[in-house]
Design a binder for these strands. Sequence first.
DNA 1: AGATTCACG
DNA 2: ACGTACGTGAATCTA
Length: 893
Amino acid sequence: MTNKKLLLIDGNSLAFRAFYAMYNQLDRMISHEGLHTNALVAFNNFLDKIVDPMAPDLALVAWDAGSGKETHRGKLFPEYKDGRSKVPEEFKEQFPYLREMVMLHGLRNYEQAGLEADDIIGTYSRMGEAAGYSVIIVTGDQDLTQLATENITVNVTKKGVTDIESYTPAYIKEKFGLTPDQIIDKKALTGDTSDNYPGVTKVGEKTALKILAEYNNIDNLYDNIDKMKQSKMKDNLINDRELAFQARELATILTDAKLPLPLEEMEYRGVDFEKIIPFYENLDFKQHLAKIKALRKSGQLENTKEFDNGVNFVELKENNLRAIAMLGDKISVHIEFVGDNYHEGEMIGFAIGNPEVGYYASRDISLLQTEELKSVIENDQILKNVFNVKAQLVLFKRLGLALKGVSFDFMLVAYLLDTVANDNVLSTLAQRFDVYLAPDEDIYGKGAKFTVPTDTNLLLSHIAHKADGLFKLEKPAFTELKQHEQTHLYTDIELPLAFVLADMEYQGIKVNPEYLRNKGKDLSERIADIQSAIYIEAGEEFNLNSPKQLGVLLFEKMGLPVIKKTKTGYSTAVDVLEKLAPQAPIVDHILQYRQLAKLKSTYIDGLLSVIYPKDSKIHTRFLQTLTQTGRLSSVDPNLQNIPMRSEEGRLIRTAFIPSHPDWQIFGADYSQIELRVLAHVTGDKNMQKAFLNGEDIHAETARAVFGLADDAVVDPLKRRTAKAVNFGIVYGISDYGLANNLGIPRAEAKRFIDTYFQEFPQIHEWMNTIKTFAHEHGYVETIAHRRRYLPDIQAKNFNLRSFAERTAMNSPIQGSAADIIKIAMIKVNEALRENNLQARMLLQVHDELIFETPVDEIDELTEVVTNVMDSAVALDVPLKVDAHHGDTWYDAK
DNA sequence: AGATTCACG
DNA sequence: ACGTACGTGAATCTA
């Protein structure tokens, strides 16, 4: 059905692009022999990513012979290519290697005296077309688009060498309104500065397109030039008539050159792995060598013609559904969906299977709902490998299925192994384990150009490869997990938590859009009022949302003192504006404007835009594998930063309501969890005693730091100061930071800290111990062995190193608190089920859990939730939980 | 795409 | 002497 393929590559223009695509790497990419390799690396990427997967039947890389002077164009026009800047030495030295690389990738090099690469390509493209081939041209030179026909596609690099724009006659028509032939006429009129031939004076691309739209070609143009209305352009056209016809000749690519090499001699042979290894070694292509090694190990290098033949898959159809039952008790499952948001992203295909039996894949998602598939998906005795279990759980829920038996989630394991290197992308995470999968970008393109391939084989092969990759990854990933002593963390915390989170997200939280809309109207009016007041006070209108324009007004026009600067100019952040407020009434108005504008755009408009009309609910996604500490984060929308601190903002919470009548919102939060964790992990007896006695910890800290009697009443300022010190300790204290926060001199801050450490000596000791541990091991751990690597702990740069040290102190605290609430969530969910409660957990906000519940369950729920939470993990200090409920989230306080 | 600002724990 | 408080996400402006 598909034609045989002839691939023609414009070697010079692509090599040139390759060189400049990685020009910024020039000094970094030097082989041990001192050879620059930037163009070689980029060209090799092009061959790996574009040519090898395409597997053409015939392939040729055409090169220019000599400087261009001896070519037929040079003879026509002696100044041809004069004035070209000299080819850089660093580029020239890579040329011989380029040709060898081409050969080792199984393509033929070709050049011929008197011809340029484009003439070779022009001629062979016509020969190939005549012989019935689909011809694919790849070049960096847009002029070659003149060669496009129904059977000849011209791919022109846009950026770098792998980002390509495909020119077909239809595309050229759409883009320029021209036929491929008219590309030549366009060039005749505009000329070519880089090849040093002029066209018609003052005619550029725009004018040329206009002329051609009217006259079709330059023959017709000059036949009718007398009838053209008098204009400067007409004079130019008449004066430069000769130049135009000369330019046309120069721009015309030969399609009938005499070329001795017959098509049959261009057979594409694929990569010669034997010979390319020493070649890569010589150039220090470490990445590529690793890739080959991995392929060889997995036995994929038997057949060198097919670069990628390791995964067998069969398209699943109605008539072979029965085969699924024969896969056995261990499989990979993967539903592929579009975008990040699995609540709404379109499911475009799936694969299921294992290396022993093979893989079954289909675009037809409804096949998953057949009895044959359902009985496998929902069977918890059939163990499954997946990537991102939470996403797969939600996708299956959307299909009415309950995925069970998941044992290996590569995304979760990879995150636990190294939060720093984690980018949540299967193909890149797999590389760390020497498993090579095509990046999604290679299959779908990226950004606005994302498209699901129409080629079913290509799509299903990609998905099947993912499923297969999970099998290759399982063993090495689990081995490392065990070495880290993180098996418990994975099996008993993160994996079960994913199921809990999937339920919460899928359940969603109900929102009252009416409330938000009314609040929005109110805010709009008030924002408009404040805005006009500000404009009057400023004496001009400007963009209030622009810190830059605001800075000019406040600090230049009004001459207010500059308190803080940012990288780009004056800071206009709250703390700065608050200091300026007494000096000018406008500043206070700006602060009001900022607050209301934030509420309107982020919380009113933002939330309204993510309510699902179907159920009037918001379905956030909790990112389980993102933070460096083990906390969750929440996106689309973020429901972990709904306003609370200001009353005006807190009212937003009124919009969050139960999904049934006679239900309420219920919240339970840990009190001072991080300080309790601090008391536990440091073993500090004084702080532990405060918690064991149920003291107000900040007041107790104040008594210690200010040397007050045990029963002394603590005034609010001292308590506030002590609270800030406590926070500072948790954040990995420094006198500078504390001084800044409290607005006190550094020396005073230092005294607070010194006294604090005297009063809580084991905290001091622990801070030193943990920093030493980080220096020695390069990472720190939580109570559940959650690990955070700190590569900067050895940095020479003071800032980087200090930051790493503070992180070493903070992460075990913040991370252990995260461990605790995660364990609590799993246990709470179990307890709800065991107690036959209808209440549902909806949100987690780091130290609190939000539920919706029937009113008549509230007493029991309070009992169950607080008990489970405060006993989730046994620490050396008690955990305290407070619970609240009300008709809306706002009222649950 | 990066910087700034501000919302939360 | 150095000069940042820890962890996040969204909206907006600017280049």
